[in-house]
Amino acid sequence: MKTLRISFIIFILIFHSTFTQANVVEKSEMNRGNEQSKLFSKLPDDLTDIGYVQVGNATFTFLFWDIYNSRLFTKTGKYDDNSGQDLLFKINYLKDISADELIKRTVEQWQHLKYDESKYQHYIPKMKSIWPDIKSGDSLTLYRKNQTTIFYFNNEEVGNINDKSFSNLFLDIWLSNNTSQPKLRKLLIGE
């Protein structure tokens, strides 16, 4: 009888230990899931709902036509071009533009910045697979989080480029000191 009691106690201890370990693993998995969820599969209309503060906004105009409105968001409401901080850059289009035209304009801006073709050429197929044709009223948002650049079309995730160099390269079109639109840059970074 004593042996049976000891066996039962050992069984309870082993069961409790296994249950506790499983519970710890489950909580660890949940925390990892919560951290991962910060990569958002869908963005809210109001980006302040996810803790981002607008740094600045600007409208790009060509001749007499407004082409798009753009807004830059960070967690602090300030932009630090050397930090690689998490940020959101949202463009609301006021004119239609095809994905091919969008890529062409992107490459033209990289050429303006005098970037060697080898620096961006390998990103072009990925951008083609992510970016849709855009109609007036659509939005395209870049979300930079750690090493990943995620694109959202009308707040729905459409793809990502898991390379920290890409987000800097893309954002340089607007935020580099050598941008083709210095006034737009100043408005975006809140100067």
Rank of each mutant, 00 (worst) to 15 (best):
F170E: 08
W131P: 04
L4H: 10
A58Q: 11
A99V: 02
K119G: 10
L169W: 02
S41M: 00
E156L: 14
A99K: 03
T148S: 13
N23Q: 14
Q54R: 15
I161H: 06
N23P: 08
Q121M: 06
S167C: 11
K90Y: 02
Y52N: 10
I9W: 09
L113V: 07
L188T: 03
I14D: 05
F11V: 09
G56T: 08
D86F: 00
Y52H: 10
F73I: 15
K128Q: 03
T18Q: 05
F64D: 09
D86K: 06
M1D: 09
T179R: 01
K186D: 15
L13Y: 03
N155E: 08
W65S: 13
T48V: 04
I161L: 05
E108M: 01
E35D: 13
S139D: 00
T76S: 15
D96C: 08
I14K: 15
L142Y: 01
I10A: 07
Q121C: 02
G77A: 09
D86Y: 02
K135L: 10
T149S: 15
E101N: 15
L187R: 11
N34Q: 13
W65I: 11
A58L: 08
L43Y: 03
I67L: 10
S180T: 06
N177P: 11
G33P: 08
M127D: 00
I130K: 11
T106K: 00
I173Q: 06
F89E: 03
F11N: 09
F89A: 03
K78F: 03
I10W: 02
N146A: 15
S17Q: 07
Y93G: 07
I130T: 12
F40K: 11
S98V: 01
F40D: 10
S165Q: 05
N34G: 10
Q109A: 09
S118M: 03
Q111L: 14
Y120V: 02
D86Q: 09
R71E: 10
R5Y: 05
T76F: 05
H122R: 08
D172N: 12
T76E: 12
V55P: 06
I12R: 07
N160Q: 13
S165W: 02
D81F: 02
Q109R: 04
Y115N: 02
G137S: 10
T76K: 07
F11P: 08
K75Y: 02
F60E: 09
N82S: 12
T18E: 01
L43M: 06
P125N: 12
D81A: 06
T48N: 12
I6K: 14
W131N: 03
K126W: 04
L39I: 11
E29A: 11
T76I: 04
D66F: 06
L171I: 10
V24I: 15
R185L: 11
L140A: 06
I103H: 06
K27I: 07
T61N: 12
I97V: 13
N162P: 08
L87T: 03
I189M: 04
L4F: 08
D138K: 10
N178M: 01
L13T: 14
N57Y: 02
K78D: 15
L4N: 12
Q36E: 12
K128R: 05
S7D: 10
L94F: 03
Y93E: 04
N31R: 03
F73G: 12
S37Q: 06
K186S: 14
V158F: 02
T149F: 07
N69W: 00
S83V: 00
N155Y: 02
W110Q: 00
E191T: 10
F170A: 13
T149K: 00
S41T: 07
I6W: 06
